[in-house]
Design a protein around this nucleic acid. Sequence first.
RNA 1: GGAGCCAUCGCCAAGCGGUAAGGCCGCAGCCUGCAAAGCUGCUAUCCCCGGUUCAAAUCCGGGUGGCUCCUCCA
Length: 466
Amino acid sequence: MFIYDSVQKTKLQLIPIKAGEVSIYVCGPTVYDDAHLGHARSALAFDLLSRTLKALGYKVTMAKNFTDIDDKIIQKVKAAGQSMPEITSLYIDRYLQEMAALGVGRADIEPKATQSLKAIETMIQTLIDKGFAYRVSSGDVYFDTSKDTRYGDISHRVNEDEESQSRVAHTDEKKNSKDFALWKACKNDEDICFKTAFSSGRPGWHIECSAMIEKHFHGTNEYSIDIHGGGADLLFPHHENEAAQSRCATGHELAKYWMHNGFVQIDGEKMSKSLGNSFFLKDALQAYDGEVLRYYLNSVHYRNDFNFNEEDLLVAKKRLDKLYRLKKRVIPSQASMPNTVFKTALLEAMSDDLNVSIALSLIDEMVTQNNEKLDVNSKDKELKKEIVANIEFINSLLGFGGKEPFGYFQIGINEILKNKIEMLLAERTEAKQAKNFARSDAIREELIAMGISIMDTPDGTVWERA
RNA sequence: GGAGCCAUCGCCAAGCGGUAAGGCCGCAGCCUGCAAAGCUGCUAUCCCCGGUUCAAAUCCGGGUGGCUCCUCCA
């Protein structure tokens, strides 16, 4: 398996710190709002990584956190008049539900900041004791970036004296402009506070991930985990800070490899709350099938930016449709073994830093070749079994193609409509047999107007939702 | 102001020094009562200018254009 390491900026062979096992930690969402397409893309990218590693025989342990203490959440609590647990559990549930609709598997460990306070406090105290962190009069605790000689190694940010250029407002009590809060003391009674030795308050954003990783993973004296993942925007400052805290607290590096996924853009611009162009996953799932969305969002390499657009989504659907039409032709057959050449090639493509484009092209070729074979001999039982097995393998590796194919083409059609379609088709078949083509074509027109396309096959007429 | 990423057929998108994958669209054909579906065939020298090399879309330098990070962010 080769993966692109965004710290070394090169593709590297994955050599896990424990042979045969891979530990992954991915930064999850801050749960104060609904998930958008960007969250989906990140989740999908690392889901693909996990599936590929498992297919290669690795034992994968994946952790994805929920940040459930945060300024934004506190704002929402005040505005909505609900408790913090009410708000966070609502969005966690929705997140998990929507990701499930995209076929994203659950992480093995799903830590929450609120459940990790002991680990957070311990790590901060360690940093204070070792002299890497300092408490100011307000009770806030900052990390002293000047004490970490390797600060900047992750994001390759040079130690420029950017005081004048920095857009960050400086707190007077900070020793260095880059120092960041490990702990924020309560400013007034309304704040959500947790008691610690240094002050009553709440953790900073960056410390959560470091503490959770130390709590749940026990790596080696070199690294805590194999792979740390997240969106490209987290590289700095979030991951830089995580790495610094962990390095200084534990004496070893946080992760052996760092992977970052590209953004989802809308009309060529990053999708973000501040730009007001967020596309919520729940709205996307309202309009499109989860499996199609999955196929589409995964169809561009995870490191590239992804420009979301409906036209391309429909192209993705067409490609998925082709796989399901092949499945229709072979469906009642039981799976035998997938074609070795196909399976090997598919795994090889995914092993190369998740080269999905190659994988999808291999699938398209497999579909075309087997359609051709079935055109020649539609009763080849062994071939059909192999095709079923191929599709099952695709489903396990890439997470699509698992549905019952006739049902796939009828998503969103209710029973009443279905009955009407069946009646019209029966009438059309009669008309056709009576050579009454005017009538049969009229029925076809009527169905097309209903959004139904039909196709005559040797086994009778089948229909699809257009 | 600083740092980085990207630029391949009408559109999406692989390629990681050895002579341009795949999909959509389009055209021609097979199949079909006609369609649809399926199949076959056809369609790019890689933003511009230099350089390195026997050989460059791929490496280096300089432009131009787009995006991102330096503030919460997937």
